[in-house]
Amino acid sequence: MTDHTYKAYDEDLGALKTLLARMGGLAEEQLARATDALSRRDGKLADQVIADDEKIDALEREVEEKAILTIAKRQPMARDLREIIVAIRIASDLERIGDLAKNTAKRTHAVSEALPRKLMTGLARMGRLAQDQLQAVLDAYAAGDAGRALAVWHADEELDALYTSIFRELLTYMMEDPRLIGMCTHLLFGAKNMERIGDHTTNIAENIHYLVHGSVLTGERPKKDTTSLTPV
């Protein structure tokens, strides 16, 4: 696309994208470290994740301020307007992803060293998958590629399916050994966090579609998370 007649307008929009790239990078890192902290039960790393969440929050505020100021100054239209609205929405999703990573990290302290290793593998897999999805959607955003965003949107199914299987697996452990109920519940919440991160990632994918095409992505996304229908 050609540049604006006002050079400073391009700079305003460029600055928003840069902020979001930083936010996205941080969110990815937080997610990776939170998963790592929980699966290795590394309390120190978990504390760092908890402390660093503030950085993402601060960036979200910065994105909002920049977006509001740009709207006030430029009265954006068409794609420029979508660019700004989408930046606000994506920033909000990334901030929520940061919160979910922080919440996952917090659970590290509640899960004891004695926890059988096999219980962690499913969650670690979910964490990796959520990271891959997040990275793919952020790449799609940076490239303005709605096709890649759509692929991420569809792939969320896998994360949902994995969550359902972990849910069942943890239920089985809890039934086998009631002493594990407390810890398994924490892991279940951790897994739920990953599933929610997947949902925020698909929100971002939907916003990329809107940004590029100017229309809302319609149609039911295939859902494989059936846990809310599972009788316990």
Binding site: M1, T2, H4, T5, Y6, Y9, R74, P76, M77, A78, R79, D80, L81, R82, H213, G214, S215
Partner: peptide, 14 residues
Amino acid sequence: TAPRDPRTQDYITG
């Protein structure tokens, strides 16, 4: 919000 023609897009976004 979402014009069809790229010329419209270019004009209204300056």
